[in-house]
Design a protein around this nucleic acid. Structure first.
Lengths: 311, 311
DNA sequence: CTGTTAGCGCCTTCAA
DNA sequence: TTGAAGGCGCTAACAG
């Protein structure tokens, strides 16, 4: 103890008055760890999707005393790879590879030797852990909502798109069908259209022109549901009086519609958070896909059951 | 030149086969520059706002070969300051301080000695450059849209909220009034309500109950306009037949409504980009507020002028 | 004009 | 237990 207490105090004072803070770059150089996580998204701007994923990831990162570096690939694989390099150059502790739409996609080559978690997408060969919404169970929920309301026939699905690269549609469809099969019922029809207001409006408008009248409608997302509302209203059908409507995503939009939409929500925040937790977890956790369950946001777009149901 | 060409080639080969890349942390240590920009937002998750600001900032950062690290203050000043410290510890080249709503707000103390640009907010003492939407001119545009359509009387504003911390409302209002005053006209009434569907719906519904019938409506944002559409439709008024509607923000929602909404758009992407450019510009540029003009997104919610107007 | 050297700020090992 | 020293990977200044 060669340093006097007084000297120590003077040093401590200097630390505060000069606002000294350790240089994390120097720390990183020595320790080869940065407390920094890179997150690569295809499109940041995409309204709620990427931003909520980001928000969840950021919250979890903060909780673990980490910070997020973001990069937007903009759909261009080269730009994306450049970004990845940029992050690796900065020696991020790991990378989250996120897409704004649920996708089966090849993990970029240069990520295969880096600690990586896929978010809202998964590698066909499951080389790294992935986080996805549990669309299959979500679909089942949507189906059960209608069934519990006593709507077992004349149910139509709006937004079937089996050809897309996305996997959400197929999984939701599977879940819905499963719920109906359990009750020995089935879906009456599926209407194929993009998951946006205008296409959904047009598709349903055309379909209704045939004279069929559905009792229940499942929309593949809230935006499609908006178009569906418009088409139903034009056809003089009321929600939920004539037709009950269930949807997916649980976006803000679902709460803006009148009547408020019952929607099976994408747990984007939780997904983002889980991705960070997996990335930071000491155990590699194998490389399985983690499914996050989709909560139901109950609105007023589904007819209450005619008779009270015993649980 | 003591190194033989052959040796040089062998080194170069090693670089590529071993995927050697310079360690930017080491570079930073030496050069005291990181090619990294920190961006502090109050809420990332807030739908389009922060995410579009982020997207714009990110694009500009990429163009300047920089990378963005993000931090979400979550409304808590302490958490925010911790984040700022975290970024300064990482020796970011500068910080963008962004809010999701246009605000007049004090620059955090520890940012006063750091290269900083305020985004969507400004310091009362203008200590640093700021980027904001030109809401005043935007308001004027909104007014002129109605005036050019021949709607000079019975114009009502939905969403007056002079008491908020936000400055957008007041500025838009000022612009609208200015446009009308230039034609020696004036706004008939202002309806005070929050800028969301439900409050706007209720406020207009109540107002319409008095029996007054507006010819033009200016909504303070697209979400309020959604509520306004609902109230008008309930009252049996058509858009744009009976009432012309203009709104602000230019969000996706405006394109989803039927008829499509004419909206004076927030140039969020450009704002984010400009903030980065100012931050990286060699000249400090003083510390003035930079106003980014708001483009008009033309929909079908405004009645075409009865007679062709000569430009 | 090339090749060597001395740190950037920190952490970790080693000696006292 | 505490202090000194070496080196993380790089760049800028310097010597040859």
């Amino acid at each position: 103890m060669r340093i006097s207490a007084e000297t120590e105090q003077r040093v401590r004072d200097a630390i505060t008055t000069l606002h000294y803070r350790p240089n994390r770059n120097a720390q990183s150089l020595r320790t080869a760890t940065t407390s920094t996580i890179g997150i690569i998204t295809d499109v940041i701007a995409s309204g709620m999707f990427s931003s909520q994923l980001l928000a969840g990831a950021n919250a979890a990162a903060r909780a673990a005393e980490h910070v997020l570096v973001i990069g937007e690939g903009e759909g261009d694989a080269d730009a994306r790879d450049l970004l990845i390099d940029e992050m690796l150059d900065r020696r991020v502790d790991g990378i989250i590879f996120a897409t704004h739409t649920a996708l089966r996609t090849e993990l970029p080559a240069r990520l295969q030797s880096v600690r990586t978690v896929m978010l809202n997408c998964f590698d066909p060969e499951e080389r790294v852990p992935a986080v996805m919404a549990d669309d299959c169970n979500g679909g089942r929920c949507a189906g059960e909502i209608l069934l519990r309301a006593g709507i077992e026939t004349d149910v139509v699905i709006v937004g079937e798109t089996p050809d897309t690269a996305g996997v959400a549609g197929l999984r939701r469809l599977t879940g819905i069908r499963a719920a109906f099969e359990e009750q020995a019922r089935e879906i009456s029809a599926t209407i194929d259209c993009e998951w946006s207001p205008q296409p959904a409006y047009e598709a349903l408008h055309t379909w209704l022109a045939h004279g069929d009248r559905p009792r229940g409608l499942v929309c593949m997302n809230d935006r499609a549901a908006l178009g569906v509302y418009q088409a139903l209203s034009e056809a003089g059908l009321t929600v939920p009086g004539d037709v009950s409507v269930v949807s997916f995503d649980g976006s803000e939009l679902s709460s803006w519609l009148r009547p408020q939409l019952t929607s099976v929500a994408l747990p984007l925040r939780q997904m983002g958070a889980l991705a960070v937790e997996l990335l930071l977890a000491p155990e590699s956790d194998g490389a399985s896909v983690h499914f996050v369950s989709m909560p139901v946001i109950t609105g007023e777009s589904v007819r209450p059951p005619l008779e009270p149901v015993s649980v």
